[in-house]
Design a protein around this nucleic acid. Structure first.
Lengths: 186, 186
DNA sequence: TCTGTATAGAACATCATGTCTGATACCGAA
DNA sequence: TTCGGTATCAGACATGATGTTCTATACAGA
């Protein structure tokens, strides 16, 4: 068991700066158009310093995205225990509402894919385990769980992105209700 | 009314070569990693020739994707008139099965986004008009058509991509049935 | 205070993109 | 078949982003 040493304060500062720079640049000009040069300028960090911590721009994005995902997981875990719903959809709608600047900026840019892929597996896990745990009262469908899980995940995603992209025309609670009703069959 | 002149035979040949090169390269190494240099090497075409016809790599992809979309539209239009279903899902599953090499190669690469975006609007149109035309027998939902259309489109997409990405474990007809059942509510 | 490590700054090689040139080959219409 | 218009080729070139490497300096933690 090798003891984890807390990172140097300088390292923490540098990473924090880069994270902040990334977020503001994503909102400002989108992930695609953001260059490494932009990042280190905004973060006021040396070029070699950047590459000392991250291999590529995508690497930074992934690391930054992990933090968002962690927050998300927290909120999802809460709803999971509360309601009997399979997907933690309400938590997701609320979470996206909070950070909507970022998500809207990422939709359509390549950063969206990376973020999407990161969250997708996590959501799919929720769906699968939720379906397995479910009493399945009066549900005589023969559709494999795999397919149903993918359906639940994909349709939720589509509503989430549509909603944010259209500047959230309905409150999170309404979106959640609609999603619940639309996926009654699954 | 300016009469449309058919393009020079040389132009046709060049574009055909580039289209072929694009398709084979997408399958071979993915869209992202394909460079303009790769394209013109494979197509055996001069660099300046490429830029005489397309502004960027994405431009070529879009033009090439239009052809796929056109084929798709054809198959979709047929099913539309036949069955009473809202979405031409069966036609889509069959279409993707035919060109699955290409689609699977594009899933996850940035090319996927561009292609996805192209098809998305077309599918959304189908969904919207289908919902408007529908008799709505015994359907007392208050969910706005916009949301339902997005739901139908998004969930269909997710099943399509999952299906192709997992090497089509079920026949197109089964996938279509499952999709129909899962979206009974909408 | 002292040692190890992170950082700055800048130079550098590499690679892909997109532009531009003039010479050549080809097309389609007369 | 000829001829004018145009597509193509080959290559050079400018540009901009990426990632590497170096040394001197600043700082953290013990």
């Amino acid at each position: 068991m090798t003891r984890e040493r807390p990172p140097d304060r300088r390292v923490r500062r540098t990473k924090q700066r880069l994270d902040d720079a990334l977020e503001s640049l994503i909102i400002e000009k989108g992930y695609d158009k953001t260059t490494v040069q932009d990042l280190i300028d905004r973060a006021d960090v040396g070029r070699s310093t950047f590459y000392a911590h991250y291999e590529t721009k995508d690497d930074l994005l992934a690391s930054w995205g992990d933090q968002l995902a962690a927050e998300m997981e927290l909120q999802m875990a809460q709803q999971q225990t509360e309601a009997g719903s399979i997907m933690p959809s309400l938590a997701l709608f609320r979470h996206m509402a909070e950070a909507h600047h970022v998500y809207k900026a990422m939709i359509g840019s390549r950063g969206g894919d990376i973020a999407t892929a990161m969250v997708h597996s996590s959501l799919l896990r929720h769906a699968t385990s939720g379906l397995e745990r479910r009493p399945d009262a009066g549900n005589k469908t023969t559709i494999p769980i795999e397919v149903r899980a993918e359906f639940l995940t994909g349709s939720l995603f589509s509503l989430l992105t549509w909603w944010v992209d259209n500047d959230m025309p309905y409150p999170p609670e309404s979106m959640d209700e609609m999603y619940q009703e639309l996926t009654r069959t699954a």
